[in-house]
Design a protein around this nucleic acid. Sequence first.
DNA 1: ATGAAAGCGCTAACAG
DNA 2: CTGTTAGCGCTTTCAT
Lengths: 345, 345
Amino acid sequence: MAVTIYDVARLAGVGIGTVSRAMNDSRHIHPETRRRIMEIAAQLNYRPHGVAQRLARRKNFTIACVVPFFFNYFYLDLLKYIQNELGAYQYDLFLYSIDRFDNKNLVFDRVLAERKTDGILIISVEPGPDYTGKFRSAKVPVILVDATHAQLDSIVIANREGAFVATEHLIRLGHRHLGLINGDLNSFPARSRLQGFQEAMSRHGLVVDPKAVRLCSEKSGAHGFNEQAGYLAMQELLALKSDHPSAVFIASDVQSIGAMRAIREAGLRVPDDLALVGFDDIDFAKYVGLTTMKQPLEEMARLAVERLLLRMDNRAEDDFHLELSPKLVVRRTCGATKRRVVEPV
Amino acid sequence: MAVTIYDVARLAGVGIGTVSRAMNDSRHIHPETRRRIMEIAAQLNYRPHGVAQRLARRKNFTIACVVPFFFNYFYLDLLKYIQNELGAYQYDLFLYSIDRFDNKNLVFDRVLAERKTDGILIISVEPGPDYTGKFRSAKVPVILVDATHAQLDSIVIANREGAFVATEHLIRLGHRHLGLINGDLNSFPARSRLQGFQEAMSRHGLVVDPKAVRLCSEKSGAHGFNEQAGYLAMQELLALKSDHPSAVFIASDVQSIGAMRAIREAGLRVPDDLALVGFDDIDFAKYVGLTTMKQPLEEMARLAVERLLLRMDNRAEDDFHLELSPKLVVRRTCGATKRRVVEPV
DNA sequence: ATGAAAGCGCTAACAG
DNA sequence: CTGTTAGCGCTTTCAT
């Protein structure tokens, strides 16, 4: 068995309470006693038992991060930032993944039931309707990242706005017949991006061609936001032959990559035959010259963690619904550099 | 305060021991008592307190996964598979990231000290020399993934073999002047891949041109295995002008992507001016048509978790050093389809 | 300032 | 089969 607080206490000739006080920087301890205890502790290589501490303190110093399967590279960066941020506060991170959407509540139940975490960061998933109450009664704060909920703190990308900007950018470039490749509407970002697209179209007096709108099914994984889905969706668009849109807003970069593959295989060229704007700005976007909406992930992670810690400290007053604006990054695929003539509407 | 085992016991009119037995499927309990207890427990929505269980059981049902910063997409997939596999066994996963190599031991110390995990999965990092002993005396099993150590179980990709195959493939295609872009030699895979490259060269009686070998510094992050590093390395190679190699084995796909960017910007073409073979087979490899060595990540994750559980059960007898062979995936960048004439040596 | 003792919520050994 | 009790290792009153 490892060395415990009792061993230290015995060797130091003090009670365990005093050792505990020494270890925890209590002010109620004589500096000299403290010094002696710390010395003996170091000598014995004593480290407090984390689990016992948690039980006694009724606090875990651990947060759970719930991520829907890992298909999207988006999550990797976000996770990296979150873990970095959390580490700075000496918090540990439990990673839970959701493999299927019908399973999501199972994960929440488990996290709540086992009470091993002080807070939950939920990425890109909306908890079921009755979970607000469960979270509240379990007294475990929840921050939604990349998803919203009326009763839960959330921090999201301004998806609607981003889609609007992306779409408008294509319109300004002179395109009139626009297409959309989107994820499954079960996903919140997909819904918002659809909205933004529609708004941009109607704002400019354009009608949405239903045939040019493709929603990728979540059955293909990652809410439909994956390469293969984008590939297939673009094939369908190209099957419209000469009637295909001249530009497409694609609601994620991974889909865009797939779409570009389909275009290449069809012997067409981007942006000449088809202009593209994506969403996310994953690393690879710059390698393929994809024009896209950049998500401020690091800021998102920092704010989410900060907010969660605040909540766990009960130092959070009001509700919190933050929206961070994505930024348009113009590259090659939108054909901006071609300076097309804007046709009169 | 939440409902405890005492509440259930009181309402059921039994002792807490009986409740515990009921919850834990002990055989030493009357089915009827058990039924009644479970009913009351359900009614009260009682869930055992995970932390208390851990303390009493002296077992955590948690493993730690230590990942060196998240630069490489490789880790995302691996993590996904590991988490999936672990979930099947009802284990939780603590995620720790190493941001700098000089920090790696800090993480290990922390993980060991807090005793919150039953086992450790270390990805792509070799622990310092004195850590074998620490792990052993802490009685926490460790499995190295994508790294080796004489005294620690490990499971790796056959990096040397993979590099050999990749290089030989280029040689068979007729190339004589080969280049290498590699990661930092502080990284184990980088060292092995260098070896494989050299062996293939000498096996075929070719000499390695030192000017055509680029080691990317780990200072650029991810052991040098990142896009930017590949980009810069390739620029250096192209600066050799007509003396640049006709084919390059690049020790990772992300570097390859960067390298391809450099080539494109230089106005050269792959594979005509420069043939390429990468390593990893990340998702994006297929989009850019990158010929590469595919790593069997899912199998790796499954075997690593299996093995770790075995160790934690003390059911592992001998040492364990597994090497999984990567497989050559031929695509466009190696120019295989051009059927070059093999020049006589 | 410090020791003693009472939990934290559960498991497991020991009687019966 | 079941109740009782002694831990698990630490924190935190409560006296002193």
